[in-house]
Design a protein around this nucleic acid. Structure first.
Lengths: 206, 206, 206, 206
DNA sequence: GATGAATGAGCTTTCATTCAT
DNA sequence: CATGAATGAAAGCTCATTCAT
């Protein structure tokens, strides 16, 4: 599944499908080899096209990578927003938080090379590429921060904790999973419940 | 300090000092540009030598990088072992754990390009380089696992938690700090105490 | 006018007009960028067609360029022949020569990208393209040589001068104008009269 | 001789000789194939080095070409200045002019790929490269203009002629020779004397 | 010990050209 | 007639690496 996800929806003309294949391949290579290690020829091989065909769809290597990095976070956000929207009206902030943790982890580990590509390369990509991604990250972070603040107001988590620092520690614990978690050896349900317990206890505290 | 740390001690002949400068520079470049993004010419510039001079000290680019990656973790372990050895005999596992968190964070953020280089590039480095680093990581992880298990036996943290998963979540929260924490804007003491509270509560749980 | 000239006449079906537009555009690009610098995509943009459409009218890039280079001189010759034919029967060789100078200059500077394309790229085009152009050039040169020899016989210009060398010096003075003369800043009538005086005196001599 | 000229003088260390060989080769290729047609691999073949070696001496293709274009005119000027300096004090402007014609032609035809490269590609090179060359051209043109004005003051040539236009016609006649004159078939002394007669008569006039 | 000089492999990118539609 | 899609070949350029000095 991890290798065949579709990014976004939309038309599926032959042209659109080729573009998608290139983008998917780039996400996978980026995720494995890193920004500087991504070679267009590897992307092309995976996408089953010749390397110059990439230039029919993207104006440069940077352009292609930018779109992967940007849509990695965008997709994560869309995913989360949809999940939160489905919750019944009276759901408590802490329950919403719990859902967010689950969605983030499942999307990162189960579905998306885009997410892992974004996460792993955030620190290595040149400034020009970084900017649009940062905008998306801020939007994504804002959703989490809102939930966290609501939980604080509701007294569900400690009030003395700095929201930004807390969020970053939580993201750290979650994002790092893609570095060590092996889908072949672990059960994702176990991971999700352990992570939830760790994080919620960490923030609820005594 | 972060840019001028010395890795290990030992002889300080001119030759040894040049070697150290090259290694330090490689750690810094590796930390910023990633494995594939490291260019020997950048390392040479930082170390103030000519690029071919690197070959006098290291037999190849891979060799140089391997040493950085490997000593990043080795250094972290030495650091931790020394700190733990200094603790009085009766120190509880949980207190030892608390000290470990503090040492890991301070070393990563304050002292060492080696540590961040190791952490950031663990997933992108080729297998050949990875192996020795993995051995070091296992040794380092074993120290943490011992403490954790002792704490579990002592009933200081929950017994239902899987030690390996817990450890990885903790490492995630800590390692990710190097991606977002800005020494210019935050106080490291605050970060350390927030991280300790988050992690210890997360594992103690209700 | 210089950018919209039509080369030759003939059928004006939509197809023929598109072909003409492509040829005109090629002449202009060739004139500005040179043989190796001509890109079909530039020609296509100027002609307002898609690049592959060019292949409907010309079997290759070389083919297209050959036609421009060849018709550049052909057109110059047709132009000159018409002008000479209009002269009254008794016109002296020297007067015919004077008319030739004027026609050549006006056509080159005022009317035709084809002429400048031919002139500027004569030395850089591959042999295969060159041949047909050389044939045209010889025919064109023959007209000039005839006039010059007649003038020599009539004693209107020096007899000791080598006709071929003289002709080449004259062509040089004229052809070079397209490299330096700026229609925005100079008056073409002034240029024509100065050039006539220079050339005719140069050949008449003392 | 044309293929083996040395450009400028100076040290002849091995390194300097390689640099010179690359520059000489570039001048020759530029002269034959034009700006867009110059391939570094052709230059490298002629210079008997591998293509990337060029980058040891020049930072880019443009850089290399700029130096050829610029030094083509610079060399021409140096050549001319030296010849004029050798003339006895009382030499008339017209005699100086005559010497200038001779030096220009001989240098262009006999000695220098640099000169022909500069002349042929002046119109096709991008603006960035052009600028430095234009400066040199102006300096070179100023020498000629000075002589011409002096001759006008001395009444040696017509007073009604525009100096700039005249100069351009003269340069045209001379520069064009490299397009048609074949050293195998013609005698350069004949060409020089014919050209002198043509130009001087052209400007002296009746 | 260290460097100037050079190379070979491999990268991104461009471009003429083809072909199914 | 014309175009969207794609390719093969080759270009400029970068970089790790070598080697004589």
């Amino acid at each position: 599944m991890a290798d065949t996800q579709e990014n976004g929806s939309g038309s599926d003309s032959k042209s659109a499908r080729t573009r998608r294949r290139i983008l998917d391949s780039a996400a996978q290579v980026l995720s494995n080899k890193g920004y500087a290690g991504l070679r267009l020829s590897d992307v092309a091989d995976l996408a089953e096209v010749q390397a110059p065909a990439i230039y029919y769809y993207f104006s440069s290597r940077e352009d292609l990578i930018e779109e992967v990095m940007w849509s990695g976070v965008a997709e994560l956000r869309k995913h989360l927003e949809e999940a939160l929207d489905k919750l019944p009206d009276g759901t408590t902030p802490l329950d919403r938080f719990s859902v967010a943790i689950e969605e983030h982890l499942r999307h990162e580990l189960d579905l998306s090379n885009y997410a892992t590509a974004s996460i792993r390369n955030a620190g290595q990509v040149p400034q020009a590429i970084r900017e649009r991604q940062v905008a998306e990250e801020n939007a994504y972070g804002a959703i989490w921060a809102d939930i966290l603040r609501a939980a604080q107001s509701a007294g569900e988590i400690r009030g003395d904790i700095d929201v930004h620092t807390a969020l970053m520690l939580v993201f750290g614990a979650m994002n790092w999973t893609s570095e060590w978690w092996d889908p072949e050896r672990g059960d994702i349900d176990d991971l999700v419940s352990t992570a939830k317990a760790f994080i919620l206890n960490g923030l609820a505290g005594s």
